[in-house]
Amino acid sequence: MEHKLTVEALKDGTVIDHIPAGQGRRIAKLLRLSESGQRVYMGFNLPSQRSGKKDLIKVENILLSAEDANQLALYAPDATVNVIENFEVVAKHKLGVPESIAGVLVCPNSNCISHVEPVTSHFSVRSRHGEIRLKCKYCEKAYAKEVFTGLS
């Protein structure tokens, strides 16, 4: 009994599963889950048949939209997002690449105006030869997703 998670039954909320191990914290931050005021359960380094280890997030009372789910695609392209209402899965989002990401990432260009002015960061997302590039609306520089270290 003691190794059973106490959070399995979620009445209303969202389960994000199959997050690559190590990315769970980043995704919780990306979706601002801790600011939401809702209960959030995070599992790190859980056993996974697909990839050995995975992270998992359950959040109560927040029903992620497809566009919300797409924000995950950069860091967890194979994640599954199940939306639950009244103990039933009512939507399974398949992740696509979002068109843009606003207010989450910090521009890697240290001379970018977005660092010193009260603005929301904004990146348009482009996929080129299978590689994803994010272009800052302000400084117009494009970066590979790996370059982004900070989240605002």
Partner: peptide, 10 residues
């Protein structure tokens, strides 16, 4: 004219 990249868009 401004020394910061992106100042004009802002």
């Amino acid at each position: 004219r401004h020394p910061r990249d992106g100042a004009a868009r802002l």
